[in-house]
Design a protein around this nucleic acid. Structure first.
Length: 294
DNA sequence: ATCCAGGAAGGCG
DNA sequence: CGCCTTCATGGA
């Protein structure tokens, strides 16, 4: 079964592919010949899809008999790649900005690549706290291999991120076997538990609407500080003003672009962001992806 | 070896 | 509030 899903005029799949291809340890999707393969779970439907981009649309293939999946795939992709966002507004806003202006040219058409599941986003952020990205990917891979569901198709195994119900039952020592620190193991189990109980969900957070309220609610949870809250708001809740100022990558990107001899302070980062009001998430994502470029 | 990595908690004054 | 230490591991 084949489906086409239109993409907006400002859209560059090359940039997105590059982002998706960051780690060879990624188990949640694979890329072969500019085609993305992924086991999808969305709105009660699931199945294996692959897709490539042609001119102005995605060309998708369903590799499993998943009748209902086809109907929710446009929404799934829109959510993944933020297709409904009007990037013209962002580009107009930062056109004259010395920091971001150049990036809107070199990364033109890049959209914030999202994370669908709140538990996945929170887990990934917690795992990624204060460690380098490649090590974070190692821990994520092990977590998925131990607690995720898998299905084999062709010569590959496709994985889905572990469910809170499963991680909630893990013991701290089990998670520590995966090189996850004791504290992070405690955080993960607690977050999983709150999600399983229903106290914490993507829907409930989005209902709060106000970014400040969402951040406050998230930060009440042990293990979630301002960086993690804003990271999840950026990647999963898709709040455009989310701004993880504590992020080492963001700080290094600004340092590099402004040729500073030290990392910028929070104050300086907030000051710079005056030029990106309402688009801090995009600014951050562009800075991340422009790191080490040019 | 040393520093730092897409931080946060807990203690202290 | 701001500052300090601890947590844990691996990449460069």
């Amino acid at each position: 079964m084949q489906i086409n899903v239109p993409t907006p005029s400002i859209f560059n799949f090359e940039h997105i592919l590059k982002h998706l291809n960051r780690s060879s340890q990624e188990l949640l999707h694979y890329i072969e010949e500019d085609e993305v393969w992924k086991w999808v779970e969305w709105k009660g439907e699931s199945g294996l899809i692959s897709f490539s981009h042609q001119l102005d649309h995605f060309q998708l293939k369903l590799h499993t008999h998943s009748e209902g999946l086809a109907d929710v795939l446009p929404d799934y992709l829109s959510n993944w790649f933020d297709l409904d966002r009007d990037l013209n507004k962002f580009y107009q806003l930062v056109k004259e900005d010395g920091l971001l202006g150049p990036l809107t040219s070199s990364l033109h058409g890049l959209r914030v690549v999202g994370v669908h599941g709140l538990f996945e986003a929170l887990s990934w952020a917690i795992i990624g706290q204060q460690v380098n990205l490649s090590f974070a990917y190692t821990m994520k891979r092990r977590l998925i291999e131990h607690y995720g569901k898998s299905m084999v198709y062709g010569d590959k195994t496709y994985w889905s991120f572990p469910e809170p119900k499963i991680v909630m039952q893990a013991r701290i020592d089990d998670l520590m076997e995966l090189s996850i620190s004791r504290r992070k193991a405690e955080y993960l189990i607690e977050v999983a538990s709150q999600m399983e109980k229903g106290d914490l969900s993507k829907e409930k957070l989005l209902q709060l609407a106000a970014p400040e309220a969402i951040e406050k609610k998230l930060c009440k949870i042990r293990g979630i500080g301002p960086w993690t809250a804003n990271y999840v708001m950026l990647r999963c809740l898709r709040i455009p003003s989310a701004y993880p100022v504590g992020d080492a990558g963001l700080q290094n990107a600004v340092k590099q672009r402004l040729q500073m001899d030290r990392k910028p302070s929070y104050e300086e980062l907030y000051s710079l962001a005056e030029n990106w009001k309402g688009w801090e998430a995009y600014a951050t994502f562009y800075l991340w992806n422009g790191l080490n470029k040019e």
